[in-house]
Amino acid sequence: MSKNFSNNKILIENIPSAENIIMSGIEKKYINIMIFNRFLWCIISLIGCIISIKYIGFVEQFSYIIYISTLILWAVIFSLTGISFKRKKYVFRDHDLMYSSGVIFTSTVLIPYNRIQHLAIHQGFLSRVFDLASLQFYTAGGSYTDISIKGLTKMDAEMWKEFVSAKIEKIKK
């Protein structure tokens, strides 16, 4: 097959494109977890603000600015939750998988099945309440590019894991 590769121009047209693929979104229930997580981090950061102002000794007059800017930041993050949810999309193809996310900084990660080292299902406390799970794919390329698809139902996650494991097994042979 690789012998056909001498002429780039022609092959580029023939290669199936990753661009016009319809990707599937994650479970609706996951938005609850997203809101909860944001809420938690919001509270943590506010507590951080209070502590740092009290103990590290910021100038008093700046403290309002810090509070207000933190709250504005969180208001923006909260208002973007819906879009952020919609942007989390994944697709499994014949030979690779693709995951995209992000609102202001969007990123798309592509991993071919024959480069996956191992895969794992994670389920946190909240996820268990909503019967959700996340499916994580590890490569030798480092943690920067490991895909973690959050907000799948437990069943879907198991199913996709089986599917990809079977693919990997097949490639190994």
Binding site: G102, V103, I104, F105, T106, S107, T108, V109, L110, I111, P112, R115, T139, A140, G141, Y144, T145, I147
Partner: peptide, 11 residues
């Protein structure tokens, strides 16, 4: 030897 590909874009 590519393991994975990341495409990112600022809005």
């Amino acid at each position: 030897k590519i393991q994975s590909i990341v495409i990112d874009q600022e809005i």
